[in-house]
């Protein structure tokens, strides 16, 4: 890969069902995600998706692009900037910022993020992966 290359984006539908399913799978039953009445009284005015659920789409994108190198050497730094509400799609996106030689292979640094249907950046950050490293 080279600087400027776009990563293949990943799109997900976020519904209350998928949020509830994620809550059960992750054990994070914070009512901000699963309790409509509680969430309605919160600063968000309704339930929102878990940050880690949204972030999973970035990791999926990196796994699809870099395979086991992501699993074994990936580094992710994310800031959750805006809530993701059920009832819309999110898109994980990324672009190669920098490629440099390192340890006999390459270190690829990508700017990454997750955009909501309203084109708002819900998550932004950076993902780094080392490829072609000889063990």
């Amino acid at each position: 890969m080279k600087e400027g290359d776009l990563l293949r984006s990943v799109e997900k539908q976020i519904t209350q069902d998928t949020i509830t399913e994620y809550a059960a799978a992750s054990g994070d039953m914070n009512p901000i995600h699963v309790d409509q009445e509680f969430a309605a009284r919160s600063q968000f005015g309704g339930t929102i998706a878990h940050g880690m659920m949204v972030a999973a789409s970035v990791s999926e994108m990196m796994s699809a692009e870099f395979g086991m190198a992501w699993i074994e050497t990936g580094r992710l730094k994310l800031r959750f900037r805006a809530p993701v509400y059920p009832g819309g799609a999110i898109t994980a996106y990324g672009q190669v910022k920098r490629v440099r030689a390192k340890d006999g292979g390459s270190e690829v640094v990508c700017s990454v993020g997750v955009r909501s249907e309203s084109e708002e950046d819900a998550v932004t950050g950076e993902a780094t992966v080392r490829t072609g490293v000889q063990s």
Binding site: H50, G51, M52, A55, W70, I71, E72, T73, G74, R75, L76, K77, L78, R79, F80
Partner: peptide, 8 residues
């Protein structure tokens, strides 16, 4: 959840 860093 405001931020997350992960190193695999």
């Amino acid at each position: 959840h405001a931020g997350q860093e992960l190193d695999f």
